[in-house]
Write a protein that binds this DNA or RNA. Structure first.
Lengths: 239, 239
DNA sequence: CCTTGTTGCGCACACTGTACGCACAGCCGT
DNA sequence: ACGGCTGTGCGTACAGTGTGCGCAACAAGG
């Protein structure tokens, strides 16, 4: 008799199956997985915990999702769907691409767990949201007189830069949030060890001892610096 | 009596503890983990399997490594150590940085599992190999007359681009190798679905139907295009 | 009514990371 | 020669994982 909450007494007293909600659906599962990932991080996502949140058994999810990897692909596509692509009305292509890249960075940092998932999800670009995103970004570059083929390459270049930055930053933010401390505290606490460790490397040592700006701001500035360089480089191709 | 291989009969016949090799060491563990990751991928790395390969029990590893995450940090640093930084003798800074970036891409693609780990490993840049790499790359940029502070930003920009490209490519290569097919076969098999899926998106559809070059070459060319743009953009800062 | 297909779920299996504590090796001072 | 100390390997164990399997409940349609 391993019944836990209530012994259910008999078949007659067992509660009817609830049919208030549409029960379970792929969209619900993905949405709840996203919430769980955002609040508790990647290692907290298990099929059991996710099922429990949906008042469902773990294996029930498998009726709507082939396996955990597929679930992650769906969640990643969902996240990409949050990236905003402005239209080019009254903007240069460069301003539009800049805004889009900033939005992408913001979205990726809002879901830092994604950095540990991007390397596993192949064919991410087949998801509907990713396709819509790419299509709209292509229009931005073509508005800037890139040929279709080169617009593709330019898009890939910008996105690679954004993903690279976000991966590094997200890894940092994750270990940071696990530590519980604030970014400034953490940096300050680490500084002595850093200064010590960089002793054999004069250039790194100089950078470590030079006190920089507040770290959150510094990350943003670094991102913007690199983005400007990438766009400068792309602009040289336009004549 | 759960003895398996040989019952060991008695204390007297039990084999002496082997002391031929230095038994176990952090370096050995990291090296074997790297081999295991390269041959079997990230999901095949478990402490038990790794221990077995070293003729050791799973928990023995914990005497030399705090936990699995720490092991991964060590392995990542090891991989970064394989990146070659040329000196600037008889090269422009741009040629040297290009060679370095190409080497980095090659190394990352030689160990594609790293893409799924980079997002988890915070503070990767504290490893000795990473520090040496960064220090040497800084010299390249400073040889190009970047100020120390800007050399730092330039370095970060280039590495972000390389990591972003490699993450995407590595995810692709991983799903590819899981499929067992060759890159060309896989692309050809996917093309019909791709053409169908891009129907609602004219620009993507055009790119999908336009038959490109052989896919491996195409990836390399795409990487080089973006790298040139990044370096173009950096060069504009030099006057 | 019976059939057929879809969905949720309990159970089970093989596997994971790692805490704990014992057994032993080599080294130390006596 | 001897007793302790420290560092290393390992057996056992625990809590947790993804997911295959098969049953029970339902919906639709004949």
């Amino acid at each position: 008799m391993p019944a836990e909450e209530q012994p259910a007494l008999s078949v007659w007293t067992r509660p009817q199956r609830r049919r208030e909600q549409p029960a379970l659906s792929r969209a619900q599962i993905v949405a709840e997985a996203l919430r769980l990932l955002d609040t508790d991080g990647i290692e907290a996502l298990s099929m059991r915990k996710l099922g429990a949140r949906l008042d469902a058994g773990a294996t029930s999810l498998y009726r709507h999702v082939a396996n955990k990897d597929e679930l992650l692909e769906l969640v990643v596509d969902e996240v990409y769907g949050q990236i905003e692509v402005p239209d080019t009305w009254g903007r240069t292509w460069r301003q539009a691409v800049t805004a889009c890249a900033e939005s992408a960075r913001a979205v990726l940092l809002r879901h830092p767990w994604i950095a540990s998932v991007l390397g596993q999800v192949g064919l991410a670009y087949l998801g509907p949201n990713v396709m819509r995103l790419n299509e709209r970004m292509l229009t931005l570059f073509e508005a800037g007189k890139f040929s279709p083929a080169e617009a593709d390459r330019a898009l890939t270049t910008v996105m690679a830069y954004v993903i690279g930055t976000a991966t590094t930053e997200a890894a940092w933010l994750t270990t940071l949030s696990r530590s519980g401390r604030s970014e400034q505290e953490w940096v300050d606490g680490l500084r002595p060890a850093l200064i010590e460790a960089t002793k054999p490397y004069p250039r790194l040592h100089a950078l470590a001892t030079a006190d920089g700006e507040e770290p959150g701001k510094s990350r943003g500035d670094g991102f913007r610096y690199g983005l400007e360089r990438v766009l400068d480089g792309l602009e040289t191709r336009l004549g």
